[in-house]
């Protein structure tokens, strides 16, 4: 009987590697449990078969596979019904769910339905004397909390990109196709439309902010910053001068008279670091400063600094990040 079950969805191909992050976490926990890793795989279309193989290739012994046309983008209620049905039968000890749009809603609801303990948005998982030790960020990334989960079953949601995709470790896999009956009319919340916007990530919610100052020199420079933000999945911000000069919209301004942001990563490009600006970003977890002036006050709040011209640094940085992130 499998001890750890990961919840994987296949609304699109991109979801597969991210589900594999969970598999990595599950394998780490399983090593001490010795109980094997299973997965609930939900979705629709031919991607399911491919995903099944990937899961087996990465060490998932049992794949409970649910295929249904409603198991698609954002239909949390459908995913919930399917997952609940599978897990009530499979009774795993630990359930890992990716804290994405669906997962962050699915995990707590599933925990209630299964009578499970719950920890959300974990960034690290470890087994310790039969308990699970989970780490998560708190206070907008200012502190790191360690929680010990002793109760079973337990549902843990994991922040995307916080666990590594593991090396392949193929196992002779088993597939159990589970028939789920979901009636669209009974779903309390139904997605009517998916608006796919190459999401201009909002400054308020961005986990990465690339911000430019007077030294960026003009609107053209901000195009470069936008490129950097795009590869990091973040938003572009600015200190006051670029907003004043009309290089960027006023809504981009960060600081005492603008927005306050606390992303995981803040990259200040050609920003001197006036108090007025620092007030709006000093809560960021990691601050990187790129500035030509080694005495710029921004370096006194930055964790990592590069003294140099951003025009020479940002393009190779974008290229290198693309390489590291892989295809």
């Amino acid at each position: 009987m499998p001890g750890i079950c990961v919840v994987a969805t296949v609304p699109d191909a991109a979801a597969i590697p991210s589900s594999l992050e969970l598999v990595g976490g599950a394998r780490a926990l399983d090593a001490s449990h010795g109980a094997g890793v299973s997965a609930v795989l939900m979705g629709t279309g031919p991607g399911l078969r491919e995903a099944t193989d990937e899961l087996h290739r990465h060490g998932v012994a049992t794949v409970y596979r649910c295929a249904h046309p409603l198991l698609t983008s954002g239909q949390v209620d459908a995913f919930l019904l399917a997952t609940e049905q599978v897990l009530r039968a499979a009774t795993p000890q630990v359930v890992l769910i990716r804290a994405d749009t669906v997962g962050r809603e699915l995990a707590p609801r599933l925990a209630v339905r299964l009578g499970a303990a719950l920890v959300t948005e974990c960034v690290e998982l470890a087994a310790e004397n039969g308990a699970i030790v989970a780490r998560r960020q708190t206070y907008g990334g200012r502190a790191l909390a360690t929680l010990v989960v002793t109760r079973r079953p337990a549902v843990l949601s994991v922040k995307p990109h916080s666990l590594e995709v593991p090396e392949p470790a193929p196992v002779p896999g088993r597939v159990e196709d589970v028939a789920v009956s979901i009636d669209a009319d009974t779903l309390p919340a139904r997605v009517c439309e998916v608006l796919r916007e190459e999401a201009e990530v909002g400054l308020d919610d961005a986990q990465v902010v690339v911000s430019g100052g007077r030294g960026v020199g003009g609107p053209e420079g901000f195009a470069l910053l936008k490129e950097l933000a795009a590869v990091l999945g973040g938003a572009v911000g600015a200190s006051r001068p670029p907003a004043d000069e009309g290089w960027v919209p006023i809504s981009w301004q960060i600081g005492q008279t603008g927005k306050t942001v606390r992303p995981a990563l803040y990259i200040a490009v050609a920003i001197s670091g006036a108090t007025q600006h620092v007030a709006g970003m000093s809560g960021s977890r990691t601050i990187v400063a790129i500035n030509r002036d080694p005495n710029a006050p921004i370096f006194s709040v930055a964790h990592l600094g590069i003294v140099g011209d951003y025009r020479a640094i940002v393009p190779p940085l974008v290229a290198r990040i693309k390489e590291l992130k892989g295809p």
Partner: peptide
């Protein structure tokens, strides 16, 4: 069955590390 063991503020190098 969930217990908070500790909450810590990650040690921040007060000095900026230059690359």
């Amino acid at each position: 069955g969930v217990e908070v063991r500790e909450v810590v503020i990650p040690q921040r190098t007060t000095r900026c590390e230059f690359l």
